[in-house]
Design a protein around this nucleic acid. Sequence first.
DNA 1: ATGGTTGCTCTGCAA
Length: 263
Amino acid sequence: MRIATWNINSVRSRIDRALALLEREDLDVLALQETKVKDAAFPTAPFLEAGYQVAHTGHSQWNGVAVISRVGIADVETHFAGQPPFGDPAAIEARALGATCAGIRVWSLYVPNGREVTDPHYAYKLEWLSQLQAASAGWLAADPSARIALMGDWNVAPLDTDVWDPSFFTGKTHLTAPERDAFAAIERGGYQEITRRFLPAEHTYTYWDYQRLSFPKNSGMRIDFAYVSPALAQQTAGVTILRDERKGKGASDHVPVILDIQD
DNA sequence: ATGGTTGCTCTGCAA
C-alpha cells in the first residue's frame, strides 16, 4: 500500500503530471492540496479512467483539497469538527478532507499560510492548527487502534534546518515559535510525524518557491509532513520525497511525499 | 543580467 500527499498547485494545470505520478509510483491513495478549482470543474473523468475514485472539496479558485484512491473511498468529510471559518463573510475554507481508504483514515490538509505575523491570517493559522489538534486527538482517543494519516502542506518549518536560510524568515511566518508549537502539539494527540523518522537528514526539502531561482539554488523548505497514528506508524515501512518532481516545465512548487504501508 | 514565478481570473491576489 502506497499513500502519497502532494500540494499540486492547480489540479487542472497539472493533471498529466498527476496521472503519470499515480502510474509511475504505483500509488493507491493520493492526497492533494491546492487544487484551485470548484467541485463542478474538478477533472474527475481522467482519474476514473485510470481506475481511481475522487473525493474533493473546493469552493473557489483558492485552496481545494482532494483524496484520490483506487482502494475505495468512504465516509468523506469536507472539514473537521471545529475547523475555524475565515474571511468576510466568514466561511469554512476547503482546506481539509477526510476519507477512509482500505481502512485508513486519510486527511488531506492545507494549513493556512499565515502571510505575515501581523496579518489576521496568522491568527487564523494558529487557531486552525489548534482546532485540528483538538479534533485529531479526539479521533484517536475514540479509537486508539485507528489507522489515521494527517498529511499535507502544513506551512510550518519545524526546524531551522528545514529551510535554506533561517535569517530570510526574520519577521515572516512559517518559523515562528507559536507556529512550531502548534505543529508539535499534534503529537500530544498520540500521533508521530513519520516522514522525519525515515528521512532525518537536514535540508531535506519538499517545497521550492517559484521565485528567486529557488530550485536551482536549492533554496527550499520542508513544510509537507505526515502525522500518523501509532497503528499506522507501526505499519509504515518507508518514506520517499520525490524531489525530481520539482524538475522540468510545469512543475508544482511542492513535491509529493510517499508513505509505504505494510499490509 | 546583480535579475530570474506561477495560477486563476481579469488586473490584482495569493502563495
